[in-house]
Design a protein around this nucleic acid. Structure first.
Length: 114
DNA sequence: TAAGTGACGGGCT
DNA sequence: GAGCCCGCCACTT
């Protein structure tokens, strides 16, 4: 396991996120070994060697917003997938434009705790 | 081998 | 309270 690259660790961590739960990039980065490598987590997930196996749609920003560069059909698709997993969402209170129209995952109740 | 790029996070103005 | 800037480190070319 120790021979796994940081990206490989990221994949292992993300695959460990259960349905109905979401994790932040920073959280995944921390579990992968480097709390400040949230950026690398995004880069690693962008490679996404196993789409459908790695639930990268369960990884969100630290404020609960979705990734703008989601490549599974759009941020709305990501929100739809999470809603099907019973992940609570907070509707945009203002003219938010981040991710799926400003919708943010309710980290208060659905954030994954490793 | 070296430089650039990038799904972020936190701090400062 | 909101927005902007800088820093970090692995992966790609």
């Amino acid at each position: 396991m120790a021979e796994l690259n940081f990206s490989q660790r990221v994949y292992e961590v993300v695959r460990g996120i259960p349905a109905g739960k979401v994790a932040t990039y920073g959280q995944v980065a921390a579990l992968a070994g480097n709390p400040r490598n949230a950026r690398i987590v995004g880069y690693a997930l962008h490679s996404n060697p196993e789409p459908g196996v790695i639930p990268c749609h369960r990884v969100v920003f630290r404020d609960g917003s979705l990734a703008p560069g989601f490549a599974f059909g759009g941020p709305e698709k990501q929100r739809e997938l999470l809603e099907q997993e019973h992940v609570r969402f907070i509707p945009p209170s203002k003219a938010e434009a981040a991710g799926a129209g400003g919708w943010r995952a309710d980290l208060e109740h659905c954030q994954w705790q490793a």
